[in-house]
Amino acid sequence: MAEYILEAVDIEYKYPGGTVALGGLSMSVEKGGKAAVLGPNGAGKTTLFLHFNGILRPSRGRVRFAGRDVRYDQASLMELRKNVGIVFQDPDTQLFSSSVLQEVSFGPMNMGLPRDEVLRRVQGALEATGIIDLKHRPTHFLSDGQKKRVAIADVLAMDPPVIIIDEPTACLDPRCRRHVVDLLDAANREGKTVIMSTHDVDLAYSWADRVFVVMDGALAGEGRPEDVFQDGELLERAGLDRPWLVEIYGEIKKKGWLAAGSPPPRTKEQLYDIIPDGRRASK
């Protein structure tokens, strides 16, 4: 049986204003996996993530980390937050310091690491995110994309086994986007569990090994990306587009270009591979 690192068991959460953001949501994230959480605006993705690191406490249901129920005393919360790092959707609410260096050092310092170790980690995180030359720039003179990368470095410096990242690719240019995705893949190869929320179905389709669709505060569907994105009814309900790879695969399959049983391609290259050579076919 698969080992689950994070589980939400029938959790319910109501914001003080009365909005029911989560209404009995259950999902389990496999250890070492790459999970994508999809869903329309206001579905409850961010709220769910805040439960995963103990910022919010469900009014009903349980959150489980590494097979144990999360406890909400100070010491347990610290332990949980060392293990589960969140990169927030809007970097401006995450960055509190005017100095990039100090900003990134905040997490490791709070973990009580020695100074040299903090410096080493900050350096490593800044290099990994490609912003080492912004080290001494004030955060208020950075572009949105640069701020986003500082926000990612913030969490990388803490080196948590689980990284949750809310909308990682919003406001990044294409090169930066690839860079961030590569970064997440590298973290995943090191054995970290990565959970992202995104509105980019193409990214979710090619990147994730498990897709969760959240709607109106509950899980509307989950599964392997190949399966979820073939489920027209679910996509329709959640207002999700089909990834272009799936569209094209469906179309060429319908027109009889594909050998029966060839699996849906996950990347551009896989698609090219399954398209038969037209010159030979016409002969």
Binding site: M78, D92, T93, F96, S105, N110, R115, D154
Partner: peptide, 22 residues
Amino acid sequence: RSQALFTAMSARCYTGEIRVLE
């Protein structure tokens, strides 16, 4: 924003005193 900032800082183990690298 002040609330969101507090949330984000708590997520990084903030417990009441800002400690950063000088």
